[in-house]
């Protein structure tokens, strides 16, 4: 059974993505993709992964980190984890 993501968790995720990628307040983070966001470089990706790990108490494998290149992919990944 797949775990679902609460509104609160999704809100935190959006806040993290907006902050780490330095997106403007009115940007729709749910549409963010690494290829379409200039600030989503390798260093920002490291910061984003660390922020997600710390915020949601998970450890993301290297193979998964490489795949998490969009908001939607991150959301799907976290939905598959039992979040606190």
């Amino acid at each position: 059974m797949r775990a679902t993501m609460t509104d609160a968790a999704e809100s935190r995720l959006q806040e993290i993505v907006r902050a780490t990628l330095e997106l403007p307040p009115d940007a729709d983070v749910t549409e963010a993709r690494q290829l379409g966001v200039e600030s989503w470089d390798s260093l920002a990706h490291v910061s984003l992964m660390l922020a997600i790990e710390g915020e949601f108490g998970v450890s993301i494998d290297l193979a998964d980190q490489i795949q998490l290149t969009s908001y939607a992919a991150i959301r799907r990944y976290l939905q598959g984890r039992a979040l606190p």
Partner: peptide, 8 residues
């Protein structure tokens, strides 16, 4: 964290 160390 080995994963993070290897990747970044």
């Amino acid at each position: 964290a080995l994963g993070g160390y290897l990747s970044s």
